[in-house]
């Protein structure tokens, strides 16, 4: 028995090393720092329409702020997924809604430019005001579903889109500050009568 196992390990050593490495890599991704705190998440169904309300706190690090001042655009993706629970099987995805907002420092104007999830461009003299502007999301239209659907599970995650960072920062595996995201928050939909 042991002989067979050893023979298998010898024959497939590279594959095994690769698999073990991949598992470690995945675990390290899961263990990324959570610097976006989502509060007061509520999903309401009004007829067929789904609306999302939540508050968010962005705890930007000094390095990120420094990056902002150096022309780096911070693009945040909001991923909203609505699933139907199927016992003993994978959940059925009913709705996927993605949106984004941006924070950018305009050196010419010496202001922080914010483009919110509605696409509105707003300028702020200081970062805190910009973040305050982004803090509360109200009545964000996520899409529509069948009225009869009940017990739908919604999940929300906000994360920094690294593809908009300069390439060296994207692929610098040593620097983890750009792994900036929230936890995945889940809620059951509240149906408004």
């Amino acid at each position: 028995m042991m002989g067979c196992i050893m023979k298998f390990l010898k024959k497939n050593s590279i594959v095994i090393i690769f698999l073990v490495g991949s598992v470690f890599y995945s675990l390290s991704s899961i263990a990324a720092v959570k610097n976006i705190i989502v509060n007061n998440l509520s999903i309401t169904q009004d007829g067929k329409d789904i609306f999302v309300d939540f508050d968010q706190e962005l705890y930007l690090t000094s390095k990120m702020i420094d990056g902002l001042k150096n022309g780096i655009v911070l693009v945040f993706d909001i991923n909203f997924i609505l699933t139907r629970d199927i016992p003993y099987w994978f959940d059925d995805i009913i709705l996927v809604k993605k949106s984004r907002y941006k924070i950018k420092y305009r050196n010419l104007l010496e202001k922080f430019e914010v483009i919110d999830i509605n696409g509105e461009k707003v300028f702020f003299k200081d970062l805190q005001a910009a973040l305050k502007h982004l803090k509360t999301i109200k009545k964000w239209y996520a899409g529509n579903v069948n009225e009869k659907e009940k017990n739908l599970l919604a999940s929300l995650r906000i994360q920094l889109n690294k593809n908009h960072l300069p390439k060296p920062l994207q692929i610098n595996i040593k620097d983890k500050i750009w792994d900036f995201q929230s936890k995945e928050i889940t809620r059951y939909i509240e149906v408004n009568n």
Binding site: D66, G67, K69, N70, G71, I72, R106, N107, L108, P166, K167, P168, L169, I171, N172, K174, D175
Partner: peptide, 23 residues
């Protein structure tokens, strides 16, 4: 805006210089 864009590009590049070297 052109000057600002170039300046931003330059600053971005300068900011990621260390990472670029490492990579």
């Amino acid at each position: 805006l052109s000057v600002e864009s170039v300046y931003d590009d330059y600053k971005r590049l300068a900011y990621s210089r260390k990472s670029l070297n490492i990579i």
